[in-house]
Design a protein around this nucleic acid. Sequence first.
DNA 1: CGCATGACGGCAA
DNA 2: CTTGCCGCCATGC
Length: 101
Amino acid sequence: MNDEFKQKVYTLIGAIPEGNVATYGQIAKLAGAPRHARAVGYLLKHLPNDSSLPWHRVINSQGKISFPVDSDKFNSQALKLKAEGVVSLNGRVSLKKYLWN
DNA sequence: CGCATGACGGCAA
DNA sequence: CTTGCCGCCATGC
């Protein structure tokens, strides 16, 4: 994985305004690598704790959080999204909230 | 180099 | 709406 890709992904995620969300696929595509949705997931997973990126605004194409519904990760992300006005009933996000569609 | 894994995506049943 | 399967790709062993 090249730095170029990383940088773009980080930039794109950082560019997501509050109240909006984007999917892994969209991020990957806009980063110039259409089939790298999983690579994006990899990057987020290995994100440094001190990173200020709004990773919680990145969800999967099903409009849901990519974590088991009862996990801690899920709860924390759902909480953040809720705090930003993104309706996430049982992990679901309104389609209107997507930034790039 | 081969094989398994995963914060994914799309499609069929 | 729920499952299952398969394609895709970076990583780690």
